[in-house]
């Protein structure tokens, strides 16, 4: 079977690629588009290291067929920082020492961003259940949860300030 031609947007930029029908989005991101920030931990949707946004949905790119993204928008870790400025989530993870080996971190950044877009001030329990699909073997999750609580407060405050008349 010949390869499929797919047009999509990745991190806001138009992208075209050829893929096998059975090829995963993770595989295409890493091996065809050289976006290796998205990590492979299991290929069975259990670890969340490959988390990306597909339009406004958080998905495991290992369980998403590359062909499915035709006409859609894909957001990866490489698109989270704004130019030379880290996203507040990335900054919070650093300041709270919320990573040790760091291989799960790109998936966390994408998943936390998705959480805070849906639920800007989640409870600890909501954070823990939202992130239950992202495995971290190093930290015991504690500092990740604290970082999310902290950055949620910061971002909510910044939004509020931005919304107030000058």
């Amino acid at each position: 079977m010949s390869k499929m031609h797919v047009s999509a947007s990745v991190n806001g930029e138009p992208v075209e690629f050829l893929c096998e029908p059975q090829q995963s989005l993770l595989n295409v991101l890493r091996d065809e588009l050289n976006l290796t920030g998205t990590k492979e931990g299991c290929t069975t949707g259990d670890c969340g290291a490959c988390s990306v946004m597909l339009d406004d949905r958080l998905v495991c790119s290992c369980l998403t067929l590359a062909a499915e993204v035709q006409g859609k928008s894909v957001g990866t870790i490489e698109g989270v920082a704004n130019g030379d400025t880290l996203h507040p989530i990335q900054q919070a993870l650093l300041e709270h020492a919320a990573l040790q080996c760091g291989v799960c971190t790109p998936g966390y950044v994408v998943a936390i961003k998705a959480l805070l877009e849906k639920n800007p001030l989640p409870s600890e329990s909501e954070i823990r259940y939202w992130l239950a699909g992202n495995l971290c073997r190093c930290t015991g999750y504690d500092k990740i949860i604290t970082a999310v609580q902290d950055v949620a407060q910061q971002m909510a405050k910044a939004d509020k300030n931005a919304g107030e008349p000058a």
């Binding site: 299991c42 259990d46 259940y129 992130l131 239950a132 999750y141 990740i144």
Partner: peptide
């Protein structure tokens, strides 16, 4: 696999 060999997830702790 991580589904059946279940390491603690955030909501377990």
């Amino acid at each position: 696999g991580f589904l059946d060999y279940r390491i603690p997830v955030a909501s377990d702790l």
